[in-house]
């Protein structure tokens, strides 16, 4: 079956076709899901090689889970985002050697000088990405999924295994911390709003 004939099928149907041995489903799902997995991993880790490793590991787990996939239990993309996010957080914790405090964000001169100095030479998007790096992992995860990947709060709640209100709280605190970090750059970057 050609890829075009499968492009209108949802992820779950494609995964069932994949498990049944349909090669076109393997190609269609890869084209649909691999860029998403890579994008989230890259935003979380800010390292291409690591992001590729993490996304590959998550995809490998998906392919191996395909034969036993239970229809209607979870959305394929949500499941994948969850695996990617968890793998990213594991790597970030190993990298940082622990969990960063929100206080470190509120006071840029504290343990977040790298984020503050990175803001000096970056443009808008890169400045935000750099500021995101200074957030605690769970806040960063919630903000990335909500504001950069465009997922809904219920989807993020499922991915992060928390309630919707906890997601709202994390994103609100994340936005507030980002505003504090980016405030000194507002005039310099030339705009306040569209």
């Amino acid at each position: 079956m050609p890829y075009d004939a499968m492009s209108d099928q949802n992820d779950e149907a494609l995964l069932a076709a994949y498990a049944a041995g349909e090669p076109a489903a393997a190609r269609a799902l890869t084209l649909r899901l691999a860029p998403k997995a890579f994008s989230v991993a890259m935003r979380m880790l800010k390292d291409r090689a690591e992001a590729e490793d993490v996304a590959q590991e998550a995809l490998l787990r998906l392919w191996r889970a395909a034969p036993g996939w239970r229809t209607g239990e979870a959305q394929v993309s949500t499941w994948l985002y969850r695996v990617v996010s968890n793998l990213c957080i594991d790597r970030m914790r190993r990298r940082r050697g622990g969990f960063a405090d929100l206080e470190s964000v509120a006071e840029p001169e504290d343990p977040a000088p790298s984020a503050a100095s990175a803001l000096q030479d970056t443009a808008r998007g890169q400045a935000l990405e750099a500021a995101l790096d200074a957030l605690p992992e769970r806040q960063k995860q919630a903000v990335v999924l909500r504001h950069l990947e465009g997922l809904s709060n219920p989807e993020i709640a499922e991915i992060m295994d928390i309630g919707v209100r906890a997601v709202e709280s994390l994103t609100a605190r994340g936005r507030k911390a980002l505003e504090g970090l980016l405030a000194p750059r507002r005039d310099e970057l030339g705009y306040d709003d569209d």
């Binding site: 691999a34 860029p35 890579f38 994008s39 890259m42 935003r43 291409r48 992001a51 590729e52 996304a55 443009a123 808008r124 998007g125 890169q126 400045a127 935000l128 990405e129 504001h147 950069l148 465009g150 936005r175 980002l178 505003e179 980016l182 705009y191 306040d192 709003d193 569209d194």
Partner: peptide
């Protein structure tokens, strides 16, 4: 208030 910043970051999405 961060809308312009998020917009810029979304437009600068990392590509595989």
């Amino acid at each position: 208030p961060l809308a312009p910043w998020f917009d810029a970051a979304r437009d600068d999405a990392p590509l595989a």
